[in-house]
Simulated assay, not measured.
Amino acid sequence: MTDNQASVIDEAAFTVRRSIHIAAPLEKVWSAVTEPEHISRWFGRVALDGSGAGAKGTITFPDYGAVPLMVEAVDAPRMVSYRWGNDAVAPLPDAVDDHSTVFTFTLEEVAGGTQLTVAETGFDRTSDPAANMADHAEGWVSELDKLVALLEGSGGGA
């Protein structure tokens, strides 16, 4: 399995970023980060009311519960952005609230696979920016390592 670096926190920009290499074709990684049935295999159980920008739904984690989720933007197969309302202050039924953050997956075809970068922004609007950035930085390591294991390992891929 590919060995990737940890997330980086930019406290001044209230951003968490992580870039990883996945030894899988771009199309396979794209499916894994955009199709609910594939996202559900490595991240959280995703349900959306459609596809493309504006689609709304939830992402559910076993130990956390349902989090509102909305597709912000799509530029297939290079970029997809999601907004999620996961701040402890007020998880509203609508993902677009005052405490939501946005995470963007950017994909680039590189030698031997795909470079995937996630950048999550908007922590300045959360109840505890420093703690939330630290939690999400750790979370992106755990979740994206699961994605790498799925796509590179014997987990069947996306």
Results as ranks from 00 to 15, higher is better:
D3L: 08
D3F: 04
Q5I: 05
Q5P: 10
A6G: 10
S7A: 15
I9R: 06
D10F: 03
E11W: 08
E11M: 07
F14Q: 09
T15R: 15
R18Y: 05
I20V: 15
I20H: 02
H21Y: 09
A23N: 15
A23Y: 12
L26P: 05
E27W: 09
S31V: 12
E35H: 14
I39N: 00
S40E: 09
R41F: 07
G44V: 03
L48E: 04
G50V: 05
G52C: 09
G52I: 09
G52H: 10
A55H: 01
G57R: 04
T58G: 01
T58R: 01
T60E: 15
F61M: 02
D63K: 15
V67Q: 06
P68Y: 10
M70R: 15
A73H: 13
V80H: 08
V80R: 12
S81A: 15
S81T: 12
R83Q: 12
W84S: 03
D87N: 09
L92I: 13
A95L: 08
V96Y: 08
D98N: 11
D98H: 12
T104W: 04
F105A: 01
T106M: 07
E108Q: 15
E108F: 05
E108L: 11
A111E: 14
G112W: 12
G112K: 14
G113R: 03
G113M: 11
Q115A: 15
L116E: 08
T117K: 14
T117I: 12
